[in-house]
Nucleic acid binder design. Structure first.
Lengths: 246, 246
DNA sequence: TGCAAGATAAATGTCTGACAATTAGAAAAA
DNA sequence: TTTTTCTAATTGTCAGACATTTATCTTGCA
């Protein structure tokens, strides 16, 4: 773990990289305690604030956690699915909002990945996950629901679908794709008519998963994809914006 | 943008969250300049080192960049695909290495997502992407290639396949799934026989994409998935380890 | 006037030293 | 033995200072 002392700037970034590389390479295993800030500042020959800035960078990536007190210090963190979800969602959301992603492209990606989950979900979905989907369908049918709440319920439904695949790696990867779409979906005004259509497709999906019919689930997802894309087109036309391409 | 002054600890985390929320909410748009560190320390009523720790947290997530000099400061960063890729890969790699993910689960996720790309890639792959795939296939056939180099070439091949879908959102999502598998793949010893098999399947995939035959590409990917899973099983048996389940 | 060199100011990057807060463990007292 | 107190180690925060970088302004010269 060495840094380049010849470049007097970005010391904290260099130190963070050195420690991060040590973690990735396995030199620092989970729950291992890093040297104290004072020791690190001696090792790297920098001041304590600089070391602290480096540690905060790592903490922002959930790579370490810190404890105060006599036996405290910085410890290598076991990256939990929850932490990873959170980062994945933040990054995906910002990526979409900052890069003029067209609704079409985001929509295509989301449904392509979801359709990859559907066959697995048809095999493995638990009764609990099915119940979650049904509950969200009921919620989506309630009158007086705001567009935002409708979208949030939509996200919850699709996350249950994704989790149904019983593969946490896929759930992690898909979390970003599904959640990051919400801000874009929130820009759509859902008429009573379009809600009915979506609810009916959601019901078809849930029914298909219940009887483990992967093909039906897939076709319903395909219809939902084209309908969602169509809603996006309508929005683009109404607001007289040309949807910017990537 | 307010913080809770009653809890005297984790001030930098609170400040980072306040600024991050402002960015996500759109209150701070891309390339907007944040107040100087001195001004921020006045606004939040904390010291400058504390403000700096908060800014370093945001910099670690590529949410801001800093410039020195008279017109310098911290600016809201446009999250580029490259930055997002990097974070996605780091997070995915650590998630897999730290959580005893079984080879089967990771393999299933990877191929399920890749198969979602294949139909799109069959439609849209550019000649350039096809050439990349062919070149990697040639490399994979060279004798004397280490297992690591073979895996790296494998990753490059599959990334070209994914990029062929022409959907940057999917490329971003898939980058993690494909790259994060490499450390697990690196643990496999590739015999000449297994390399031949993989190369032949890669060739089938490239051929299918060339003639835009989505079905053939999918079936080749399915075969590759089961063969890869089989290699993983062999490794598990040879090393006498039971592959830990999640 | 026009241009180049230097001075200036603003901002980040880093350092030093200090004190506060927290926590585990050792020491002391009941 | 149990409870209480003390101590030491560590992170969290602060204040002030200096170094470095960079755009802009000023000055001097042709």
């Amino acid at each position: 773990m060495k840094i380049d002392p010849s470049s007097p700037a970005d010391l904290s970034a260099q130190i963070a990289k050195a420690i991060r590389d040590a973690i990735i390479a396995g030199d620092l295993i989970v729950d291992a305690r890093l040297p104290s800030e004072a020791e690190l500042s001696e090792q790297f020959e920098v001041s304590r604030p600089t070391v602290r800035e480096a540690l905060k960078r790592l903490a922002a990536q959930s790579l370490i956690r810190t404890q105060r007190g006599a036996t405290g210090g910085a410890f290598v963190n076991r990256l939990s699915y929850q932490d990873a979800y959170g980062q994945q969602i933040t990054t995906s959301t910002l990526l979409l909002s900052m890069n003029d992603i067209s609704f079409d492209v985001a929509c295509e990606a989301r449904f392509a990945l979801e359709r990859a989950c559907a066959p697995l979900s048809a095999q493995r979905r638990t009764p609990d996950q099915l119940a979650t989907m049904r509950a969200e369908i009921v919620r989506q049918g309630q009158p007086g629901l705001t567009d935002e709440a409708f979208c949030a319920s939509d996200v919850a439904f699709h996350r249950a679908l994704v989790d149904g695949a019983g593969n946490p790696v896929m759930s992690y990867q898909l979390a970003g794709a599904v959640e990051a779409m919400q801000p874009l979906m929130n820009m759509i005004t859902f008429t009573a008519r379009s809600r009915d259509r979506i609810i009916s497709l959601h019901t078809r999906i849930a029914d298909a998963l219940e009887v483990q019919d992967a093909a039906s689930a897939d076709s319903a997802l395909l219809e939902l994809q084209s309908y969602t894309a169509q809603l996006g087109q309508t929005r683009a036309a109404e607001t007289s914006e040309s949807v910017p391409k990537v």
